[in-house]
Each structure stands twice: as structure tokens, then as C-alpha cells.
């Protein structure tokens, strides 16, 4: 299929960007969206033009690197997939596709479609861990009994890959689904209890410091999240912060 792509081009973080139109030809419906981008970049290089920079790594929906806002939706029109898992069969010959980087003041554009998501790393550093001695004498995890339901919910929260689709899709650029998942995966387990109060306070404080917006519970993040992280995690984070503060 042949497509028209409207892509955000921006030389670097200090330069003003703009949308540029490209024609791309001979796209197979079996390609992933990133493979289509590869084909387009090859065609650009052949013509002697600068290829479009975009983030990618594992290309199997695990790493959380790919991050494109496609036709007005984070990771495109399909549900429960990252951009690399989005297939070109979702589009048809002659379509015009708009591709933009994640938009949020806390995610500045580095180049073209690549944004700086290190704000997420700093939130993790503020408390997204447990202090366990890993110097060779770690005890068997199964020696601590954990209720099945809690283990399942913690695992569900832990499937967050930190791609930032929640922030990108939120009308307030709020990071609460991400932080809610990271707080929840520990709050639900006995190993997370020791540092629970400091964790939620420090992670929320860092989230606010980074300039993310306030959640207004529209639920858009839950719909667009490639891992189906539930809004319940935000409610749990709210409870955890109240518990830690009062």
C-alpha cells in the first residue's frame, strides 16, 4: 500500500519543530508500524534526506521504548499494543497517517519523535525499589506466604513497561497511572511494607517536581495503556498516600 505520512520533524530540543509530509510506497500490510518507518527512512536516505529519528529497542512490546502518537492516539488505533506491535493491516492504501512525539512538558523532545523520559527514571529512583540484601544469601521468595489475589494484582501492576503512553494520552499530562502501578506492585506485597510510607510520599513528590499534571480520572490512560494497567492502581496510590500522610 501507498501512504501519506505527516510527521513531526524537530532538529533538536532547542529548535522549533514542524509537521512535514512524506509519501511512502510499497508497504506490506504484514509489516509492523516500525518496519513501515524503517522502509520510509530507507527511501529518505536513498533520496539523500535526513531519516526520521524514533525510539525503539526490543520490537516485541516489552522494553517500552517505542513511543509514537499515531492519528491522535498513543501507540495508534489498536488496543493493548505498543507501536512496534501495531500492524499496518490497521491502515489501508491511500491513508494519511499523522505521527507525533509524546507531548508533555515533562517529556521534552530530543529529536523528531524521540522524547526524554528520564523523568520516569527519577520517579523510580525516588522509591520504586525494595531494600533487599542480594549479596548471595537471598532467601527463597516462596518462604513468605502471599495471598493469590494480591500476587496477581501486584504482577498486573508490574507489567507496566514505563513507555509513557499514559502521560501522552492524558489531557493533563498526568503520570499517575505509571506511578500508581509502581507504588501498587510493592504496596500489595509483604516485602514492600517496610518502606511503603516513604516510597509513596517520595515518588509522588518527585512526580510533582517533574511537572506532570493532576489526574482528573478521565480514564483515557487505562484505555491507551499497552499493558492494560487499571485505574484501580491510581486509587490504591491515593489511599497509600493518605495512609502515609495522616
Amino acid at each position: 500500500m501507498d501512504l501519506t505520512l505527516k510527521i513531526w520533524r524537530q532538529k533538536d530540543s532547542n529548535t522549533k519543530g514542524q509537521m512535514v509530509d512524506y509519501k511512502v510506497t510499497e508497504i506490506s500490510e504484514h509489516m509492523s508500524f516500525l518496519e513501515m518507518m524503517d522502509v520510509m527512512n530507507e527511501q529518505l536516505i536513498t533520496k539523500g534526506e535526513e531519516p526520521v529519528a524514533f525510539d525503539h529497542d526490543c520490537r516485541e512490546g516489552i522494553c517500552g521504548m517505542c513511543s509514537m502518537y499515531i492519528n491522535g492516539e498513543a501507540h495508534g488505533p489498536d488496543r493493548g499494543v505498543t507501536t512496534c506491535q501495531l500492524h499496518m493491516r490497521m491502515f489501508k492504501h491511500g491513508d494519511t497517517i499523522t505521527i507525533e512525539p509524546w507531548r508533555a512538558a515533562a517529556f521534552p523532545v530530543i529529536k523528531d519523535l524521540v522524547v526524554n523520559r528520564s523523568a520516569f527514571d527519577r520517579i523510580q529512583h525516588a522509591g520504586g525499589y525494595i531494600s533487599v540484601n542480594t549479596s548471595g544469601n537471598t532467601q527463597d521468595a516462596n518462604s513468605i506466604p502471599i495471598q493469590k489475589q494480591a500476587a496477581d494484582q501486584a504482577m498486573d501492576a508490574a507489567t507496566c513497561i514505563g513507555c509513557g503512553a499514559c502521560v501522552a494520552t492524558c489531557k493533563n499530562s498526568s503520570a499517575m497511572l505509571f506511578v500508581g502501578a509502581k507504588v501498587s506492585q510493592y504496596a500489595l506485597l509483604p516485602q514492600g511494607q517496610v518502606e511503603a510510607a516513604d516510597r509513596v510520599k517520595n515518588m509522588v513528590a518527585q512526580m510533582d517536581l517533574e511537572g506532570f499534571g493532576n489526574c482528573t480520572n478521565t480514564g483515557a490512560c487505562e484505555v491507551e495503556c499497552p499493558k492494560g494497567i487499571s485505574l484501580d492502581n491510581i486509587a490504591r496510590m491515593n489511599r497509600e498516600l493518605m495512609k502515609a500522610s495522616i
Partner: peptide, 12 residues
């Protein structure tokens, strides 16, 4: 505050 957190607006 939330508008400020948005940064650049989406084209689409």
C-alpha cells in the same frame, strides 16, 4: 496547572 503540564499541543 494541567494546561502548563501539557507543553506543545498535538496537531491531531
Amino acid at each position: 496547572r494541567n494546561k502548563k503540564a501539557n507543553g506543545v499541543a498535538y496537531v491531531k
